[in-house]
Design a protein around this nucleic acid. Structure first.
Lengths: 176, 176
DNA sequence: GGACCATCGTTTGTCCCACAAACGACTCAG
DNA sequence: CTGAGTCGTTTGTGGGACAAACGATGGTCC
């Protein structure tokens, strides 16, 4: 239990490392894709839209972990830039299917190159062998999480920060 | 593919993978550390403060990539919870050095366990061998980036999204 | 010693963005 | 036709980050 069952857990720095990496990724990509309506966001949307069947906005939002209301103005801008188009589904007129325009596809192509370069640069600290492995590992882990944990109850344990009344010359008066 | 420069660049999914991973990390950690004043933020601060010499707020902020003004109320709350203390540096009275309290250290200890567990769970999709490698790779890459790129000019290339006036039956009237 | 400029931490103000809720359009079951 | 449910949009609100201004302190130059 608490005493950590013999497992010599590695330092919990993963989150921090990921945060740093992702932050840099953002900075660079956001800059490279400054012309794209919503930067990295728009890029992800475009990528998803371009792959496979034209998804509905709801599906898109769910897959990209974005709120539907956000997706609305996101697509508004992408559409204004002629990168995607909303088409009413003939089967279900409530639904809008989002498909890329030719322009969108060509832009996406260039964007992908740029992003790939940025990413490759980001992994500069790693020997080339590890880079690909890292990439694939990240993808694998992310996929596993996406599937396994739409709402995997993480209620494993919760930290208790005992109380503010410590030896700080605070007898036990406590709250009002 | 569009391919371009001979290099068979891997798909630019790294950013997305990292985003997914980091998001889950946040969700779970934020929940596990709900009692901690600023959740994962507070955790990182605590971790940094507990390691090595008591840093100044400025140093802390820089290391954690946080704005100084943010650091202020962040520490306010951590201090209110008796997890850290601000001590005026005797050499330079402008400076406040942040050091952990005993309570802070014990809380940090438990928090580290919880976080480590969350992280280990997050990597559930990876074979155990890859997990550690992934961790260390992430750490290495992140470190490299932190050092190399405080402001590494990323002005490598920028995407040009040509123009909104396309074949969309928009002759050239354009705005207003 | 005094004037000047830089730094540290705090405060204030502002802006942006995600999320919640209400709404109209539409579908489907009865 | 009525009622419940879904999809996409709009609107309102709140949180959080960043910018700038401020007091406090320190260092420098004369």
């Amino acid at each position: 239990m608490s005493a950590s069952t013999s497992e010599d857990l590695p330092g919990p720095d993963l989150g921090w490392s990921l945060a740093v990496l992702l932050r840099r990724w953002h900075e660079h990509v956001e800059q490279a894709l400054a012309d794209l309506p919503h930067g990295s966001r728009g890029f992800h949307v475009l990528t998803t839209v371009a792959a496979g069947e034209p998804p509905t906005q709801a599906a898109l939002a769910e897959r990209l972990l974005i709120d539907r209301s956000v997706m609305t103005y996101l697509l508004d801008d992408l559409e204004a830039a002629d990168l995607v188009r909303r088409r009413v589904d003939s089967k279900d007129r409530r639904v809008r299917r989002v498909c890329p325009t030719d322009h969108g596809l060509s832009v996406l192509g260039r964007a992908e190159e740029l992003v790939a370069h940025v990413e490759e640069r980001m992994l500069g600290g790693l020997p080339p062998t590890q880079r690909e492995l890292f990439r694939s590992s990240a993808a694998t882990a992310a996929d596993a999480i996406r599937l396994s944990a739409p709402e995997t109850d993480p209620c494993e344990a919760v930290l208790r920060v005992v109380s503010p009344d410590v030896e700080t010359s605070r007898p036990a008066s406590d709250q009002a």
